[in-house]
């Protein structure tokens, strides 16, 4: 997967790059409008992360160029402006998603995956991890070939864990992913726990292994082994 991130804050750029380093993504960076414009004109990307406030131009302009060139390139706006109208405006002019700073990197990863899945690889809706198969088109989950019935929240949780496999996920990021930022997080930690308990049980019932590990004090991790 090939990504471009257009962001004027070098430190944020470096942090995002480092996080995605181990995902095996090819990721390029642009610090301003001009660099962004050059990259967009010369190369193809699966997904572009775009900050709207650039020192030498408006990110909206770049968005229009991207969408004119290739409609299937996913665009996620990264903005410090959390207001609903800006979100709506961004989506209206063709962005695929909108993420407000400060975002969780695991959330950014989930959004990228989702945008690329929608735009690019039609028919490639299968996410697998050993005996667990998730078909995102029909929202169907199979363990060892047998269907399991999950609630909406259990499904969303499983998908989030799978997409961010082998990563420590904080309770805050899970909470925000499932309930949005309106709910006070500390209230939702118990709910994460109970939904995960049910999810774990359903997977084990069909002979699946327990890949959901609790990381003491901070959150959870979906991986083969508890300690690596």
């Amino acid at each position: 997967m090939k990504l471009l991130i257009v962001e004027d804050d070098v430190e944020l750029l470096r942090t995002v790059l480092k996080y995605f380093d181990s995902f095996g993504y090819v990721i390029e960076k642009a610090k301003n409008y001009r660099e962004g414009f050059n990259k967009i004109s010369s190369f193809e990307y699966d997904c572009i992360l775009l900050d709207l406030n650039l020192p030498d131009g408006d990110g909206i302009g770049l968005l229009e160029i991207i969408k004119q060139k290739n409609k299937t390139t996913g665009v996620i706006i990264l903005s410090a402006n959390s207001s609903i109208e800006t979100k709506v405006a961004g989506l209206e002019i063709g962005a695929d998603d909108y993420l407000t700073k400060p975002f969780h990197l695991s959330e950014l990863n989930a959004r990228i995956k989702s945008v690329v899945r929608r735009n690019k690889y039609e028919g490639d809706n299968l996410i697998s991890f050993n005996e667990i198969n998730v078909d995102t088109a029909g929202q169907e989950v199979k363990v060892n070939g047998k269907s399991i019935k999950l609630t909406k929240k259990e499904y969303e949780l499983l998908l989030y864990l799978l997409i961010n496999k082998n990563r420590v996920l904080t309770k805050q990021s899970i909470s925000e992913h499932i309930w949005g930022d309106f709910i006070d997080r500390s209230d939702s930690y118990d709910f994460i726990y109970s939904h995960l308990k049910n999810l774990r049980k359903k997977i084990l019932e069909k002979g699946g292994k327990d890949y959901i590990h609790t990381i003491y004090g901070i959150g959870y991790k979906f991986s083969e082994r508890e300690t690596e």
Partner: peptide
Amino acid sequence: SHELMTPIAIIRGKLELLIQSPNIEKNDFI
């Protein structure tokens, strides 16, 4: 709002990077 959110995003991102490290002690997670 703009100038505060970007540094917060950086700190949060770095903490997220930090917790991926295998060398972190249990108590440090807290």
